[in-house]
Design a protein around this nucleic acid. Sequence first.
DNA 1: AAGGTTCTTGACGGAACCTTGACGTTCCCG
DNA 2: CGGGAACGTCAAGGTTCCGTCAAGAACCTT
Lengths: 232, 232
Amino acid sequence: MKNLSILLVEDHRQLAQTVLEYLEQEGASVDYAGNTRLARELVQEHHYDLMLLDVMLPGEDGYSFCQYLRKELALDMPVVFMTARDQLEDKLEGFDRGGDDYIVKPFALPELSARVTALVRRQRKEVTANTLQIADLELDPARQEVRRDGQLLKLSPTAFRILRILMRESPKVVSREQLEHELWGDLVPDSDALRSHLYNLRKAVDKPFEHALLNTLPGVGFSIQATPETAQ
Amino acid sequence: MKNLSILLVEDHRQLAQTVLEYLEQEGASVDYAGNTRLARELVQEHHYDLMLLDVMLPGEDGYSFCQYLRKELALDMPVVFMTARDQLEDKLEGFDRGGDDYIVKPFALPELSARVTALVRRQRKEVTANTLQIADLELDPARQEVRRDGQLLKLSPTAFRILRILMRESPKVVSREQLEHELWGDLVPDSDALRSHLYNLRKAVDKPFEHALLNTLPGVGFSIQATPETAQ
DNA sequence: AAGGTTCTTGACGGAACCTTGACGTTCCCG
DNA sequence: CGGGAACGTCAAGGTTCCGTCAAGAACCTT
């Protein structure tokens, strides 16, 4: 919740106060508007990570305001509707007008907080870690890229998958069977192609560099780690 | 709901059937797993736009599976928990483990559908009609226009759709399967017309310019990136 | 009904990839 | 120490995948 900036649009003074205090106590900074006229101004002048929006407001209602945000201002900040209206049609309208979530009063403050966090996390693309890293070796699953010491490595698809598994399990040792099963399922090749793939993987990952990262434990499996334990 | 592909993980046969039929009737294609073991396999082999995940499952529970998706596989598909557990702590745990939404059984099917749509809309960057931009390439969804370096490109409708998908996923790699499914749903052409469309797309987007933006990763998929560095 | 655009199909050459097998080396355990 | 199993190295064959292109089918518009 750190460093979130949130706009709360709600005309009930009491509820607004409660929500505001809770969120600020969690580290967010919250601006408050009691109607959409003020909200309109705030939204044009400041950036908010998320908006909490009541449906029943004096003057323009929340649905309409949300739609205005999306269509006219082209703002894509997450919007959470907060309202006492619990009928299905109300919820459907909320989503239809461009809302991201819909929470019915009375709600538990921690739940509101959790939903806010989830939306912001997604907005910021923090849902998953984007790279795996072992020492100076980095693997980016989304881009299908591997770098060591900053430079891009060329790997075949299978080599990439093997490296991904080893890095995911690091520093654990991965057995040959586990690797083969994960790569090919029940259709494991007759003669062990895995050896060739590991050879090619090594050629790309370790050969051009000083220290080897990829280790073999004969009869046990393979591992990738920064400090290859040397036998006692 | 057009051409969504959804993975439903739920052990109650009856409920699964109901949800599945409803979503398919809305135009989604739904794969079904009764446990996380099967779900694990499916998730590694196919792309899904979203996952519906029960919490109480035989063997591994849904929370744990979701966390595994995020941490180990680095998959960022939206996850909606579906469960009868309505206690606050359960919900908090769902979000804490990487869930995007949490819906309590029994729920109205249209609400589930609305929440699914809202999540996918956000994932696909369709909340607003803002232009997508990668380097000097701009795509305006509202006007159905594409420009590179300021000049208007002439694209066929399908080429436009492909480019839009690649741009919104950038810099992620999009598999051939994902592209085909989103373009044609269950009616994918026999022989791969996708190749021709990509060829034409390249001819329009890359051919007249200095650097290519559209990259092929053989056996993996396609991506569009500002800096298509090649290894050695 | 005609004309244009778009989509699909099929063929071809080439590149990338996976598998296989051979051979030498290392490791483990009797 | 010696033999067998496991491993590293490497090249070659076959397969899959991809870029290219043109022709015909389907579609839409007028």
